[in-house]
Every structure is written in structure tokens, then in C-alpha cells.
């Protein structure tokens, strides 16, 4: 089964990417966009019958995928 994990910088951390994208969109005339955040999406396959799927995903996130000092994640 496909798992999707969305990783973003925590809200309190300056995220110049998002700000930059927002400016570019505004310059193109899309002035209704605001509060843009950029994240990364990681997709992976897991066995259908995996027990403790949630804690398994939590484990991979904590061990490698996410740096909890600056990032937060959400399983989609």
C-alpha cells in the first residue's frame, strides 16, 4: 500500500522558498495567493498487511525522513 508523507518546515521557521514563490506569483498577476509554504512529499510502498503501520511510519520519520528541530510531518 502506498504511503504518502508530507514534510514541511515548522510554521515558526522562516521559509524563504514560500515567500519567493508568493512574490513570483504576485508578479505574474496572481495576487490572490498568500501564505505559501513549500514542502516535500515522500511516497513509499508498504505491505498491505503491515501491522502497526502508523508506528512504523512514525519510526521512519523520526529516524531519517524528518528533522524534528525544523520540520513537521503529516501522513496523508
Amino acid at each position: 500500500m502506498r504511503a504518502k508523507i508530507l514534510i514541511r518546515l515548522k510554521k515558526q521557521i522562516l521559509e524563504p522558498q514560500g515567500k519567493n514563490i508568493e512574490e513570483s506569483l504576485n508578479n505574474l498577476g496572481f495576487d490572490k495567493c498568500s501564505n505559501i509554504r513549500q514542502g516535500k512529499l515522500i511516497e513509499l510502498d508498504l505491505p498491505e498487511n503491515l501491522e502497526d503501520r502508523d508506528s512504523y511510519i512514525k519510526d521512519i520519520c523520526n529516524k531519517l525522513l524528518v528533522n524534528s528541530i525544523i520540520e513537521e510531518y503529516e501522513v496523508l
Binding site: L9, I13, L14, P16, Q17, N20, N67, I69, I70
Partner: peptide, 10 residues
């Protein structure tokens, strides 16, 4: 401690 983020000017 801490982390290193992207340069502010990207």
C-alpha cells in the same frame, strides 16, 4: 544543537 536551513536568498 540546531539545524542549518537554506540560505535566506535561496
Amino acid at each position: 544543537d540546531g539545524a542549518l536551513n537554506r540560505n535566506v536568498k535561496l
